[in-house]
C-alpha cells in the first residue's frame, strides 16, 4: 500500500523533472543556435539601416529599411559583378579540374594493377600532410616566372588536383562490388567506358562531397589570390571584399550590404546541399 502511494506521488514529479530537463536542454540548444546565427541576422538587419542607426547599434531592426544600401554598395565596390564572375569561373573550373583528375587517378588506384601502385598512392597521401605555408613561396615564385600573375590560370591550375579527393573517391570506388566490373569486362567494356558509364553514376555522393568542398575552398580562398593578383578586375570576391573595407571607410552599413551579397551564394548552396556538406564532414573530416 505504501509502495503504491509512493509510486503515485513520485510519478508526477518524475514527469515534471524529466520534462524540465528536456526543456532545459532545448533552451540550451536554442541559445547555442542563436549564438551561431546571431552575427548573420545582425549583419542582414543592419545592412538595411542608415549610417546613424547602424553605428549606434541600439535596435535590432532598422526603423526604415533602406534597400538603397545594396545599390550603393554594389556601385561603390566598383568591380562587384567582376568579382562575382571571377569567383564563379575560378570555382567551377577548379571543381571540374579536381573531379576529372581525381576520378581518373582514383579509378586507377582502386581497380587497376600496375607496378608501383601502392608506393605512388602513399606518396599521394603523404602530400596531404604538407602544410600550405611550405608550398606557398615556391608556388608564388613559379607563378611569377611563368608570367601567370594576374591570370586566371594562376588561380585555377595549382588547385586542379587534390590528393584528398583522390583518396575519397578511391575509397568509394572500392566499395562498388567488383562483380560489376567482371560482368562489364565480359560484356566487352574497357576501363574508361566502365568508369564513365557505370562507376560515375554510382558514385554521386562521393563526387558531390568532393566537388562541394573544392567549391567551398575555392570560393573562400584568400591567401593565394591575395598573393597572385594585383589588378582589381582579376580578384575573386574574398580579396575584393577585404579591399573594400578600406574603401567603404566608416560606411559600415554599405560594407555589411556588400558582405551580405558575397555570402548569399554560399548560404543558398549550403541550404540546398546541407546534407552533403555535413555528411561529407562527418565521414571524412576536412578542416579549412
Amino acid at each position: 500500500m505504501a509502495a503504491v502511494t509512493e509510486k503515485r506521488s513520485s510519478l508526477p514529479l518524475a514527469w515534471l523533472t524529466q520534462n524540465l530537463g528536456q526543456k532545459l536542454i532545448y533552451l540550451i540548444l536554442i541559445a547555442g543556435a542563436v549564438w551561431a546565427l546571431f552575427p548573420f541576422l545582425w549583419m542582414v538587419t543592419s545592412s538595411f539601416k542608415s549610417y546613424a542607426e547602424a553605428s549606434a547599434a541600439e535596435t535590432f531592426f532598422p526603423t526604415r529599411w533602406l534597400f538603397s544600401n545594396y545599390i550603393d554598395a554594389w556601385n561603390q565596390v566598383g568591380y562587384f559583378p567582376q568579382y562575382f564572375l571571377n569567383t564563379i569561373f575560378i570555382a567551377v573550373a577548379t571543381v571540374a579540374g579536381v573531379l576529372i583528375t581525381s576520378t581518373l587517378a582514383a579509378y586507377a588506384f582502386a581497380r587497376m594493377e600496375f607496378p608501383g601502385r601502392d608506393v605512388l598512392f602513399i606518396i599521394l597521401l603523404a602530400t596531404m600532410m604538407i602544410p600550405f605555408e611550405v608550398t606557398l613561396i615556391p608556388n608564388f615564385i613559379l607563378i611569377r616566372n611563368l608570367k601567370w600573375a594576374d591570370q586566371y590560370q594562376a588561380l585555377i591550375i595549382p588547385w586542379t588536383a587534390s590528393a584528398f579527393s583522390v583518396f575519397l573517391l578511391r575509397q568509394f570506388f572500392l566499395s562498388i562490388p567488383s562483380d560489376l566490373y567482371d560482368a562489364a569486362v565480359i560484356d566487352g567494356c574497357n576501363n574508361l567506358r566502365f568508369l564513365l558509364s557505370i562507376i560515375l553514376p554510382l558514385s554521386r555522393p562521393a563526387l558531390i562531397t568532393s566537388g562541394l568542398f573544392t567549391f567551398l575552398a575555392s570560393w573562400n580562398s584568400l591567401m593565394w589570390p591575395l598573393l597572385v593578383t594585383n589588378r582589381p578586375e582579376m580578384r575573386p570576391i574574398q580579396v575584393g571584399i577585404a579591399s573594400f573595407i578600406g574603401d567603404a571607410g566608416t560606411q559600415i552599413q554599405l560594407l555589411l550590404a556588400a558582405v551580405t551579397i558575397s555570402v548569399i551564394p554560399v548560404i543558398i548552396l549550403y541550404l540546398i546541399l546541407q546534407r552533403w556538406f555535413i555528411e561529407g564532414i562527418a565521414t571524412v573530416g576536412i578542416r579549412g
Partner: peptide, 18 residues
C-alpha cells in the same frame, strides 16, 4: 546541426567583418 554548422561554411572574410 545545420545552424551550428553554418559559421564554418560562410567565408572568413565575410564573418570577420561582421
Amino acid at each position: 546541426r545545420a545552424i551550428f554548422f553554418l559559421p564554418y561554411v560562410v567565408s572568413t572574410v565575410g564573418s570577420a567583418i561582421v
